[in-house]
């Protein structure tokens, strides 16, 4: 888990004052950061803003990056924080506060403790991009974040633990729960929704 020689050299020369070299880092990671943001905030306009904010923050704090971890992991950490901040101060407050309340006892956070789903139903469907987006939107931001880091950015559990400042064991169980919940949504055509109060009863009764 170390930053590549190439990236380190770019970082070094940016820090020496050659800011134009920063473009090489942008070109390496803009797609991943943009997609992370797109999945987190759910629309292209905000995702573009989040991506820009992420890279500007990274540029400004580049001197604090220590070369002992991957640059990508460091960058995704900034990106997810930028997105979560945005979601918290935006109109999505009600959705976020549910999980924020429970942020200490993270294991007890918003999801239904025992979501079940019918895999056969899910497998019969053709999953479209639209389905996936709607499914992700159903998850709490924290659940979405962890699943995105794994599935879109391809981070290992150890790297995700680093980004979130948590234990690998926590990462493991959170990913599992997020995945199960997403599958439940997708197999059910959207009837399971823990976050939306109107659906709470229905979801609870189902299980």
């Amino acid at each position: 888990m170390i930053t590549s020689v190439y990236e380190n050299e770019i970082i070094r020369s940016v820090l020496r004052g050659k800011s134009e070299r920063f473009e090489a880092l942008v070109s390496l990671y803009e797609k991943n950061v943009y997609n992370l943001a797109l999945r987190m905030v759910g629309n292209p306009e905000d995702a573009e803003d989040m991506t820009q904010e992420t890279f500007i923050k990274a540029y400004k704090s580049l001197a604090t990056f220590r070369g002992d971890g991957k640059f990508s992991v460091w960058l995704y950490r900034i990106a997810t924080n930028v997105c979560l901040d945005f979601l918290r101060r935006g109109s999505h407050c009600d959705e976020v506060s549910l999980s924020a309340e429970n942020s200490d006892g993270e294991e007890t956070s918003v999801d239904i403790p025992d979501v079940s789903f019918e895999p056969e139903k899910l497998l019969m469907r053709k999953l479209t991009r639209e389905d996936i987006s709607r499914g992700l939107a159903e998850l709490s931001p924290e659940m979405r974040q962890i699943l995105i880091l794994r599935e879109i950015n391809g981070l290992s559990y150890a790297e995700i633990a680093q980004v979130l400042g948590t234990e690998e064991g926590t990462v493991k169980s959170r990913i599992f729960r997020a995945r199960k919940k997403l599958c439940a949504f997708l197999s059910d055509g959207g009837n399971i929704s823990a976050n939306s109060p109107s659906n709470n009863k229905q979801g609870g009764a189902k299980r």
């Binding site: 899910l122 999953l127 991009r129 996936i132 499914g135 599935e151 995945r179 599958c183 197999s187």
Partner: peptide, 10 residues
């Protein structure tokens, strides 16, 4: 099912 969702995401 997990695999299908995982690869759609990726």
């Amino acid at each position: 099912a997990f695999s299908a969702v995982s690869s759609s995401l990726g």
